[in-house]
Each structure stands twice: as C-alpha cells, then as structure tokens.
C-alpha cells in the first residue's frame, strides 16, 4: 500500500458517499445517470466475487463491502425510492453499446481464461467507460449541480491517483498490470474535459454549464 493508492481509495470513497448523500439529502436524483450507477454496481459485483475466497486484508474487505453496499443503495434510490426525480429523458446513452463490446474484449484480452479472471477483467474494462452515460447526460442537460461536479471530480481523481500508484509499484515493487493500467488511462482521459471545466468554472464559484 502506498500513499497514492490510499488517497485514491479515499477519493473514490468520498465520491461514492458524496453521491449517496446528495440523493438522500435532496431526496432527488436529478442530473444523475442511473445507467452509470447500474454499471458501477456491476463493476463492483464482478470485481469483488473473491470477497469471501481471497482475503487480502481487513482494509481491503471492509472497503469492498462499503463499495458494494453504497453502489446498490444508490441504484435502489435512483430506480425505486426517488424514482419520480429520475430524469430518464436525458439518461439516454445506450449502455449496451458499452457492456457488450467490453464483455467481448474481456474474453479476448485477459490474464487468465478462468471465470473469475474474465469477470475481473470485464469489471476493469467496464469501469473505464462506465462514466460515459453520466458525462453524456450532462452534455444533454447542458449543466450539472455543483455537488454532482464534486462527485465527478473525486471519482475522476481516484483513478488518476491509481495511475501514479502503478508507477510507484512498478518502480519500487516491479509490479505492473497492463490491463488495469491501459483501462485506467482510458478512464482518466475521459475525465479530462470535465476536469478542465471543473477547475476553470466550479473552482471559481461558477456553475458548470455547457454551451447547449
């Protein structure tokens, strides 16, 4: 464990909690893409199947349970509890155009052709594109609530910190996982234009609005 991975995990945790609180406090999931949240729940489900079979550390197990619990709670709140506020008309990204190619790629490019490893690879590839429906929704609505931009910033920052973690681990441990690194680069690159808008607008007290 190194400081970049730890801060990355904490940034990820902050993002997940921020979103949960936003929906719970405002009792509304306006501006939130349910499709992205379903994909994140799928990412955690397929990645943490080894929760009971492969014990790494108390920290690792606790975080996995928190991620799984929060992601399902978020999906539940979007599609059931606060369903009336779900903005389905703007959440129109075709998720199957992501899940099917990612599923196929996981079969073709993986470390080991076993069910658990293919599902893990699927979760890594899916996570790299899971935010697309959310970013697409923001372009369709032309704006995002400030709390939602903080959520997205923390979420984008987490994988950027993981990229530094992988440089650190390669240099100090000789460890590298090309699948995770390539997918992590794609994932972080997808946030670049959001990062630019966040830093130039939201951090200057402006609302994030796109030229519709």
């Amino acid at each position: 464990m190194n400081v970049f991975r730890l801060t990355g995990d904490l940034s990820h945790l902050v993002a997940i909690i921020l979103l949960l609180l936003k929906i719970w406090k405002t009792r509304s999931c306006a501006g939130i893409s349910g499709k992205s949240q379903v994909m994140f729940a799928l990412v955690f489900t397929t990645r943490y199947l080894d929760l009971f079979t492969n014990f790494i550390s108390p920290y690792n197990s606790v975080m996995k349970v928190i991620y799984l619990g929060c992601s399902y709670a978020t999906v539940y709140m979007i599609y059931m509890k606060f369903k009336a506020s779900y903005d389905g008309n703007h959440d129109t990204f075709r998720a199957e155009f992501l899940i099917i190619p990612v599923g196929g790629l996981a079969f073709l490019v993986n470390h080991e052709f076993t069910p658990l490893e293919i599902l893990w690879t699927f979760s890594i590839y899916l996570e790299s594109v899971a935010i697309l429906p959310q970013l697409f929704m923001i372009t369709k609505t032309g704006e995002a609530e400030t709390i939602t931009t903080h959520y997205l910033f923390a979420l984008g920052l987490y994988r950027a910190l993981y990229l530094i973690n992988w440089i650190w681990r390669y240099y100090f441990e000789g460890f590298f996982d090309l699948i995770a690194i390539v997918a992590g680069c794609v994932q972080t690159i997808l946030y670049c234009d959001f990062f630019y808008l966040y830093i130039t607008k939201v951090l200057h007290g402006k609302k994030l609005s796109l030229p519709a």
Partner: peptide, 10 residues
C-alpha cells in the same frame, strides 16, 4: 506482472 494469488487492489 500480474500477481498469481489474485488482485490485491480495490
């Protein structure tokens, strides 16, 4: 390269 005893990252 990838560690045999499974993935240790979240």
């Amino acid at each position: 390269q990838w560690n045999q005893q499974g993935h240790d990252e979240l």
